[in-house]
Simulated scan of single mutants.
Amino acid sequence: MTPREQVFSTIRRSLGVNGLEAPRAAIVAERLARRAPGVLPARAQGKSAAQRVELFIAMAEASAATLSVVAGPHDVPAAVADYLRGHNLAPTVRRGDDPRLSGLPWAKTALGVSTGRSFGDDESAVSAAFGGVAETGTLVLASGPDNPTTLNFLPDNHIVVLDAADVAATYEDVWTRLRARYGDGLMPRAVNWITGPSRSADIEQILLMGAHGPRRLHIVLIDPAARSAEADGTAAAAPAGSTPSPVEVRSTLNVDADTPEGGDERPDERKPDKPPSDTPAKTPQEEDDDDKLDEELDDSFPASDPPASTQP
C-alpha cells in the first residue's frame, strides 16, 4: 500500500465508508460539474477578439513586458533574432520541443538553437504559451516535456510566442480551456501565470528586476489580422510595442542653461568673458604634496567591488 492509499484508507475508516458508495460518488461528480464561476472583472467583458488583443498588448506593456507583432508563425525566428540583436544579446536560445516551435524556420536565421530544459546557464529561452489573459496582460504556460518549466524561470531573457487567437478575456476563460484540453484528472503538473518580468522591491522598496526569474520578458504575438490591416491601409503607423522609439543623441559636453540644443550660443546672446581668477598657481612642491595625499586616500578607501551581473 502506497502512502497515498494509507492516507485515504485512514480517512475512509474514520468516516465509516469504503469509497465505493455510488450515491456519494454521484454527489461529488454533480458538485464538480456545477462549479459556479467567480466574479468576473468588467475590464475585458464584451470585447471582440481584436479588442481583447489590443487590451492584452496595453496591459502587458504596462507590466514592463515588450512585444513584437508578426503576421504568421514563419516570422517568429526573425523577430526573436531582431530582439536579441536590439539588446546586444548573444544569438543563442534554448527552446522546448513544442511542435509550434520545432516547425519554425530557425535555420533561416543566424541563431544557435538548442532544445531541452535549462540548467541555469542559458542567457535566453523561447517558450510557447498556452494562452494569454487580456484583463491583465498575463501569459499562461503549461508545463510538460515539450515546454520545460525551467525555461520560464532560469534564463535571464524569456521570449514567449503567443497566438492572438489564444488571447482570452479572463482567467476563468483560460481555466475552462485548460480543462477542456487536458480533461479532469489530466491537468499539467504546473501551470505558470506570468505577468511581466520578474521583480521585487522587498528590500528598502528598491525595485530589482530579475529577482526570482528573467529580468526581461518579450512576447512575440502572432496576429494575422496585422497583415490584413496593413493591406487594407487601416493599420497604425506601428503595432503597439513592436517598434522602439528612435534614439536621440545629443552632446553632454559644455552644457549651459543659456545654450541652445545645437551647442552654439546665439550671436546676440553671448555672455561677456569671465574675469581671470585671482587664485595663484600651485608650486611644483604643492602639486607633489597633493598627489601624495590622493594616493594615501586611495589606499585608505579601496574601490568597491564591481556590481554583480545580476544587478540591473
Rank of each mutant, 00 (worst) to 15 (best):
302 P>Y: 01
161 V>H: 05
215 R>I: 04
11 I>S: 09
14 S>L: 09
229 A>N: 01
311 Q>W: 15
192 N>Y: 02
129 A>L: 03
249 V>M: 10
103 G>V: 03
268 D>W: 13
64 A>D: 15
67 L>Q: 05
219 I>R: 03
290 D>M: 11
73 P>L: 15
93 V>C: 02
227 R>I: 02
14 S>E: 15
254 N>P: 06
187 M>Q: 12
287 E>S: 09
18 N>R: 12
58 A>L: 08
145 P>G: 08
264 D>C: 09
162 L>S: 07
304 S>H: 13
189 R>V: 04
290 D>H: 10
38 G>C: 09
160 V>Q: 10
268 D>E: 14
272 P>Y: 05
39 V>Q: 15
297 L>E: 10
199 R>Y: 15
212 H>W: 07
126 V>A: 05
80 V>L: 01
236 A>C: 08
229 A>I: 03
186 L>F: 14
214 P>N: 09
156 D>E: 11
129 A>G: 00
166 D>W: 06
260 P>V: 07
271 K>A: 08
46 G>S: 01
294 D>G: 05
115 T>A: 13
164 A>D: 06
65 A>L: 03
31 R>T: 03
213 G>K: 08
72 G>I: 05
30 E>A: 11
6 Q>P: 00
110 A>S: 13
269 E>C: 04
118 S>G: 05
98 D>Q: 01
124 S>T: 12
245 S>P: 09
221 L>H: 04
122 D>Y: 02
130 F>R: 00
188 P>K: 06
202 D>A: 07
202 D>T: 10
236 A>F: 04
271 K>N: 05
208 L>Y: 10
272 P>M: 00
289 D>A: 12
237 A>R: 12
205 Q>V: 11
116 G>C: 04
55 L>I: 08
141 L>D: 06
58 A>G: 02
203 I>N: 04
298 D>W: 06
7 V>I: 11
308 A>C: 10
298 D>S: 04
20 L>S: 07
68 S>A: 14
145 P>V: 01
186 L>P: 02
66 T>H: 11
154 L>R: 09
252 T>N: 14
71 A>G: 05
116 G>Q: 00
244 P>Y: 13
20 L>Y: 07
16 G>A: 12
132 G>E: 02
241 G>M: 07
295 E>P: 01
72 G>Y: 02
8 F>K: 11
164 A>R: 02
175 W>E: 12
287 E>A: 05
188 P>I: 00
38 G>S: 08
169 A>E: 14
289 D>Y: 04
69 V>A: 00
201 A>E: 11
37 P>A: 08
41 P>V: 06
219 I>K: 03
301 F>E: 14
10 T>M: 12
168 A>G: 06
282 K>D: 07
